[in-house]
């Protein structure tokens, strides 16, 4: 069973009185352990797509199923729970909470899951994996962009998601940090998690098993000969 199955997904906005589709009839299936890269220019609809997949934005048309569950059929509370347990989301840009330490940022998803098992081991394992264990007690304003991004990735992995969405995770990182982030995703995919990330250019996309191109809201699978 696919971890992610998106069919005919559309998002229509009205701008200046003219309706247009930020996402236009997008289809995408991702299997466990697969790493899929979405490549597209700025404004092509990547973030809009991710937000609909994560159940944060209501589509104009189409369906999204995550691990066999049609997320549009869920109530808001159920959708929140699914997002919390099954989806890890690394948002575009800086997404840490400035007034919480790295440690607390990373365990926020666990707090929202309202489980009281001890997660100290998992938190430090993740921080170690991403090479930021020494920053556990630091607050985000004192971190570099790469460190913040790694903390956001650790946070997305916190609740052992089946699907990891990363919106331009390497966008503002230097080559070294970008590689470290992609290494983390590759390791995650190797452990069976379905990883979908977006990027502007082809550099990062090279690490993907499959690349999907996005242009003015439409998605097109890139064939091997093109790559």
């Amino acid at each position: 069973m696919s971890v992610l199955d998106v069919r005919g997904l559309c998002k229509e906005y009205v701008r200046g009185g003219v309706p247009f589709r930020a996402v236009d009839s997008a289809n995408l299936r991702v299997e466990p352990g697969e790493m899929v890269g979405i490549v597209g220019r700025s404004g092509s609809g990547k973030t809009t797509f991710f937000n609909m997949v994560a159940g944060l934005l209501t589509p104009s048309a189409g369906s999204v199923s995550v691990a066999g569950t049609d997320i549009l059929a869920l109530s808001d509370a159920e959708r929140s729970e699914l997002r919390n347990r099954r989806i890890g989301y690394v948002p575009q840009g800086q997404s840490l909470l400035a007034n919480l330490t790295v440690l607390d940022n990373v365990r926020l998803p666990h707090y929202f899951a309202a489980r009281d098992d001890n997660v100290a081991g998992r938190v430090f394992y993740l921080l170690g994996e991403l090479g930021i264990a020494h920053l556990a007690e630091t607050c985000p304003p004192q971190l570099s962009g790469g460190e913040m991004r790694r903390a956001a990735i650790a946070r997305a992995m916190m609740n052992r998601p089946e699907l990891l969405l990363a919106d331009e995770p390497t966008g503002d990182l230097d080559a070294g940090n970008a590689r470290a982030a992609m290494d983390a995703f590759a390791a995650l995919a190797a452990s069976g998690v379905a990883v979908v990330f977006s990027a502007h250019g082809d550099d990062a996309a090279r690490r993907a098993d499959r690349v999907v191109e996005m242009e003015r809201g439409a998605m097109r699978e890139r064939t091997f000969s093109e790559a």
Binding site: A54, A77, N84, Y89, P91, R155
Partner: peptide, 15 residues
């Protein structure tokens, strides 16, 4: 923004 981030991480409205 802060509350949006909480929602992204799976916080319910009540939370």
């Amino acid at each position: 923004r802060e509350f949006g981030l909480f929602r992204i991480l799976g916080a319910k409205r009540g939370k």
